[in-house]
Design a protein around this nucleic acid. Sequence first.
DNA 1: TCACGCACTACACACGTGTGTAGTACGCTG
DNA 2: CAGCGTACTACACACGTGTGTAGTGCGTGA
Lengths: 190, 190
Amino acid sequence: MRHFGEHGFERTTIRGIAETAGVSSGLVRHHFGSKEELRKACDDYVLRTVRKLNDETWAAMREGDLGKAAAVRRPSGAYHRYIARSLVDGGASELFDEMVRMSEAWLTAFPREGAESDVPLRDRAAIGTAWGLAIPIMFEHLSRAFGVDLSTPEGDVRLASALLDLYSHPLMSPEEAAAARAGLKGLRHD
Amino acid sequence: MRHFGEHGFERTTIRGIAETAGVSSGLVRHHFGSKEELRKACDDYVLRTVRKLNDETWAAMREGDLGKAAAVRRPSGAYHRYIARSLVDGGASELFDEMVRMSEAWLTAFPREGAESDVPLRDRAAIGTAWGLAIPIMFEHLSRAFGVDLSTPEGDVRLASALLDLYSHPLMSPEEAAAARAGLKGLRHD
DNA sequence: TCACGCACTACACACGTGTGTAGTACGCTG
DNA sequence: CAGCGTACTACACACGTGTGTAGTGCGTGA
């Protein structure tokens, strides 16, 4: 997964993986059958890991332990690059869909105040998922923009602060949104 | 760019590009020198296009033409896949940084109400950029989740509606945010 | 007319890489 | 002890692909 994440699927060589693992290239093939099967094995692993993380977060939230809930998501950083690649290559459809379902569950469990929207729950969950994934996907770019390595403790706090700020303050006023919505209705698509 | 976007840089072959273009593979090399130079040429083109789009959006906003401002961003859809790949491959740093600067300019020009945050403007601009890019990057996944092809007019309206909803309604109440912020301060990183 | 540059093609080469095959050492089970 | 499956290695092969080189036709300016 480190190789796939750092170099991408195509540029990753079985020989390279074998060397990192300290085994022969034939062994990798022996265990996984083919490069494609190896990728699937990685995808499965990620999916299982994300499911486990989600369950643990639920448990932590039920206990009301916010710190633990946040900490539980930290180790996933090791797979950031892999997930990003996989998502863009189009291979992680299952992962994305699963995360959308998770988001739906979260939105249902913690409904937002004054929410009486005609926007489908699933639509909001989908965009929320995409926004959430945007952070690991563009991790290096964000680190550069922030001027801090976001994987460090201080970077993590900076990121979390910014996210909290954005999550708790609407970017548009209700009037602006209404105006935009009105403009949307009258929009021509030609 | 279509080839790079659809198959990724590594899987894209000069011969394939040449065939699509109806010329010989040597010609591609003759004009661009190497595959890497060809990629740079594409990156430059995207950067110029994004700059132009940004300028046009400013102009439309100055005229108060919201519909035009929205319409102007539509044609960029052709480069969705290319930009997504490029961003994840790490090659589009310049593009990302430029977009962060653009976001900063937008946030400065249209400040949000009651904004008295200690979160740096650049941090918010960076995350805003990542969120914005998340849509084209995960376009196929979002389309699947929405159940509509988001590149169609109806899909576009669905997407815009959901975005407006999320932009105009905070996901967290001030109290929740304060609690989380407090939890953040006491968080251990070990 | 002639020379020159340019767009363009055809072809060959070197190399990396996935994959297939044969073979070895080792532990387990009857 | 014999048989057998398993983890593992070494090696060769076929193939795709970037790149280099030589060559052709054509438009243009002196």
